[in-house]
Nucleic acid binder design. Structure first.
Lengths: 203, 203
DNA sequence: CAAGTATGTCAGTAATCACTAACTTGTCAA
DNA sequence: TTGACAAGTTAGTGATTACTGACATACTTG
């Protein structure tokens, strides 16, 4: 089963991503990848000189997939709030398709060894934050969100909701419908952003 | 340097927790632990027959420390909201003291191999959720939070805020003051819970 | 003080890992 | 058709890892 290198490389990356979900990103061996594909271990090294090169490629692949999801043109119309919901739910759908994503993004395989790679990932996450923050700012300007809402922190709350939901979903047996639960939590969070300022003090 | 086994065991566990922060829970070797303590590798195995036993002990140690933080009697007085803030900030202080905590809690070392251990951790997390949920219910009853707030989901939002903040703090250089940022984010989150129901529709 | 036991070291072992060199086979263009 | 290169295999290597058994030395208790 001979394949052109580009195909084989893609196959190796996809296999690594798939295994990362079940085994854990840091525990995958080149032998496992080779076995899953149906080639010998040495073949893996023909296409990726170092094992770390696989993860570097995976990282750029994942960041591009994420950017795709964030910048999709379909999310251009509608209110800012609707677009915010669109971006968040789209990201959740991406995670549902690729459950290893959160685990890979925080793995030492990517963060521990390789400094430029770490920067790439941090920049990607930063972009996500900026995107959400911009939508929140827009929603405030449109009067949908309270005008004393700190957009920066609010964006972190949204991202936190996504991340922790994904983690819970991953550690639990994936029994729930990730997107459905996310939709519910997002509604609660957005309701809090929408509401008028708190009436008074409580202490 | 001969020590009683209980002391040595504690020393090994603390060293493992400390190394988990810098190296990553899944990458720690018995050699690293031994070296850090100043004994030979074989000594580690005298006190923990299997390497996994170290992590099992660490897990019960961590869960008990967390329970301590959640159930501290000092948090009994004050309004429900004030106690909620107390519990959250106390948990953040615990993380600041033990930065490896989030990484250990989601590591495959604890979740992948050992099924009963996984249950212990899930139960601990569940307890935390219940604790926060109960405080939210109380705050709703007291009129501090809107009465249409779903306590279950709101508790998940709080926990998500903590977890993602801890993760960001860990991956970034720990440059920020974890507790201070947490206080700020928590205020935003709670403001959303307090506010009156959203005035209208946006689409 | 003597003896037993708890703690520690020394020196391994088998398994596993990333990675390599030499050789073979498929593919495609001249 | 053939020559050249791309893709795959075989059979290793040294390094690392969790773990073990035999021996040494400190404590402690009768």
């Amino acid at each position: 089963m001979r394949k052109p290198s580009s195909e084989r490389r893609a196959e190796i990356m996809e296999t690594a991503i798939g295994l990362a979900d079940r085994i854990g990103p840091d525990r995958i061996t080149t032998e496992m990848i080779a076995r899953a594909i149906g080639v010998t271990q040495a073949t893996v090294f023909r296409h990726f000189p170092k094992k770390g090169d696989i993860w570097a490629s995976v990282a750029t692949y994942l960041t591009s997939r994420m950017r795709e999801a964030w910048d999709r043109p379909g999310a251009v119309d509608g209110t800012a709030v609707a677009r915010l919901e669109g971006v968040v739910l789209h990201h959740l759908r991406l995670i549902a398709q690729m459950p290893a994503l959160p685990a890979i993004l925080v793995s030492r395989e990517l963060h521990g060894d390789n400094a430029p790679l770490r920067l790439t990932l941090q920049r990607a996450m930063g972009n996500f934050h900026q995107r959400i923050r911009a939508l929140i700012v827009e929603a405030i300007a449109a009067g949908a969100f309270r005008d004393d809402l700190p957009a920066d922190d609010a964006a972190f709350l949204i991202i936190g909701m996504i991340q922790s939901l994904a983690m819970r979903w991953s550690i639990g047996g994936r029994s729930e419908d990730l997107v459905a639960v996310g939709e519910r939590l997002l509604a609660v969070q957005i309701a809090g952003f929408r509401a008028a300022p708190p009436p008074g003090v409580d202490a």
